[in-house]
Design a protein around this nucleic acid. Structure first.
Lengths: 145, 145
DNA sequence: AAAATAAAAGATATTAAACTCTTTTATTTT
DNA sequence: AAAATAAAAGAGTTTAATATCTTTTATTTT
């Protein structure tokens, strides 16, 4: 019933970059990890994956680090879930029935489906920009964890 | 985004017992595990926990096995979740913020909360009896996995 | 009482997620 | 070109969930 910790680190990292990026500057992994209170190398893998998938740009060497790709702020949050956790867990039957489906639903199917669909819908419609906007109203997040 | 496998085995076991119990007879672990296609010893631990918590009665020796306690059929499903998985995961922030709360919600808080509460509500109101009733309409479940 | 049965209990193995450490590679600065 | 910086990459550790195997204990049947 839980998105992974990796997802939490990843989305917080994206939002941190969105908030703190200055023209021509990269946000270093070290900096990111400290600010988010996330394990540096674990976060490194997550950022690597986000880089492979084109959500961020990464630069090596001095002054290196991460910046958001242009289009990333307008991606729906579900794309971040997909990149980090995948969408498998949205498909599995909560009771463990292999044959559970729309046509042949388990006793919890509709209940769980309502939850999952609602959540999915919300993750599909909210963009990172929306989320940054909410955070901008509350500076205490992403800073003093 | 997922209840554990253990929960799946546990609730299916309870429902199997509810459906197949004959007066004065126990359902053996061996039988249960085969019918549910669940790993025997793993299921054993789960049944042990359900026994400790008073949801089932267990008997050792020849003819031993499990039966439902009287009141179990009228328990809400959430009690099974609680017994097997605990309720911790319902409380954690999806974004990993430690300080996320009603007063200080993360950007996903309200979204997630709405659907979580819906799910909880449903798990609180549906009893095992309800679920057995649904299964009774569809004999293909709990049998030919 | 002895043998058989079946769950309880305990120890161990496997897998995946979460996390750490070290080495390599690319880049920049001197 | 050499030194310094910082991410990429790879290997290893830890923890929790899942799964298996073995031994013990309680009960029943003979």
């Amino acid at each position: 019933m839980q998105l992974s910790k990796a997802f939490g680190y990843g989305i917080r990292a994206l939002l941190y970059i969105a908030q703190h990026h200055q023209e021509g500057q990269n946000i270093g992994l070290q900096d990111l990890a400290e600010q988010l209170n996330a394990p540096r190398h674990f976060l490194g893998k997550i950022m690597q994956e986000l880089s492979k998938r084109g959500l961020v740009h990464s630069a090596k060497g001095p002054g290196g680090g991460f910046t958001l790709k242009e289009e990333t702020l307008d991606l729906p949050v579900i794309k971040v879930v997909e990149a980090i956790d995948g969408l498998e867990s949205f498909k599995k039957c909560a009771m463990g029935f292999e044959e559970c489906s729309e046509d042949h639903p388990c006793p919890l199917h509709d209940t769980i489906k309502a939850y999952k669909n609602g959540l999915l819908q919300s993750l599909r419609t909210h963009t990172l920009r929306d989320m940054r906007h909410r955070l901008d109203k509350d500076e205490t997040f992403l800073k003093e964890i």
